[in-house]
């Protein structure tokens, strides 16, 4: 759906993006990851049309993007902003109308969303009267009420309590199921792992990794297997395998060729009672740190 094609952007003497390319398929949650200063915000601003790229282009369904940039896109910036002195309801209607939605439609959509979030009673409250978390919910509605086809969420969960985090997570998944493409930018890797299907990792203005989350984990796995057991393992058993971790009750073993059969057979012959056996996959966090630090040393 969205195609980023060799996008370059420089500011004065600093090359923020050095030719980044990737694709965001339709109807998925796509993680945009990178350390601070990697060029994420610049990239998001190019996708939103706030900046124009120096080189390269952004394509939406194969079309150049400029025409679409205003109506089909919802953007929740990392630094939230609403008119503090304006009332919640009129403000949401205004922001929705600015996306080209007619007044009556905008109003009924805002009412529906506020009902869904159980905040319709806030209609006449000024933004400055709301707490940070409450403002966050309003901001989310402002982003989704225009019914964008592409949603860019920059750290959408900061400041939210677990209940509201789940509420928003569910809405994000529901929107995905309806065919909306969602670009999700965050530093919180466990959240990425939980809700993203695809990711791209950029560092110092360059893409260093992209693909499906499961495929990436597979690619970075180190053939590690973890066994939990009860009882005593004989030394002879341990000498057969490459031990990574060996504490009473837990054992992590590297199997270079992925031959789990030998390990399972040996366990079956040993006197211990096995309670669990599983492959150890790297977390995105580990992959992230590994790649970024390697990149810096390179």
């Amino acid at each position: 759906m969205l195609q980023i094609d060799h996008v370059k952007k420089a500011f004065h003497n600093h090359q923020a993006l050095k030719g980044v390319s990737f694709e965001v398929p339709k109807g998925i949650i796509f993680g945009l990851l990178g350390p601070n200063g990697a060029g994420k915000t610049t990239l998001i601003r190019i996708i939103t049309g706030i900046f124009m790229p120096d080189e390269g282009q952004v394509l939406m369904d194969g079309q150049t993007y400029t025409g679409l940039r205003y109506s089909g896109l919802g953007y929740l910036p990392e630094e939230r902003g609403l008119y503090k002195k304006m009332k919640v309801g009129p403000q949401l209607v205004y922001l929705t109308e600015l996306k080209g939605v007619p007044h009556d439609v905008a109003k009924s959509r805002v009412v529906a969303w506020m009902k869904k979030f159980d905040i319709l009673s806030w209609w006449n409250k000024k933004i400055e009267e709301l707490s940070k978390g409450m403002q966050q919910k309003v901001q989310f509605i402002a982003t989704v009420a225009p019914e964008p086809q592409l949603l860019i969420l920059d750290e959408p969960f900061t400041g939210l309590d677990p209940v509201n985090t789940n509420l928003i997570k569910d809405e994000i998944r529901r929107l995905r199921d309806e065919g909306v493409s969602i670009i999700f930018s965050t530093h919180r890797m466990e959240q990425v792992e939980e809700i993203c299907e695809n990711i791209v990792l950029i560092n110092a203005g360059e893409k260093i990794l992209d693909g499906e989350v499961t495929e990436i984990k597979d690619r970075f796995k180190k053939q590690l297997y973890m066994v939990k057991y009860k009882g005593e393992l004989p030394e002879t058993f341990k000498s057969q395998f490459e031990m990574v971790e060996d504490t009473p009750g837990t054992l992590t073993v590297r199997l270079p060729d992925g031959q789990t059969g030998a390990l399972l057979r040996a366990l079956a012959d040993s006197p211990v009672e096995v309670s669990s056996f599983k492959e150890v996959l790297p977390t995105l966090n580990e992959i992230f740190i590994q790649l970024v630090t390697n990149d810096h040393h390179a």
Binding site: G49, I50, P77, E79, G81, L82, L95, T143
Partner: peptide, 8 residues
């Protein structure tokens, strides 16, 4: 920061 929303 409301500008970021408006100018998108």
């Amino acid at each position: 920061r409301i500008v970021e929303i408006i100018i998108s």
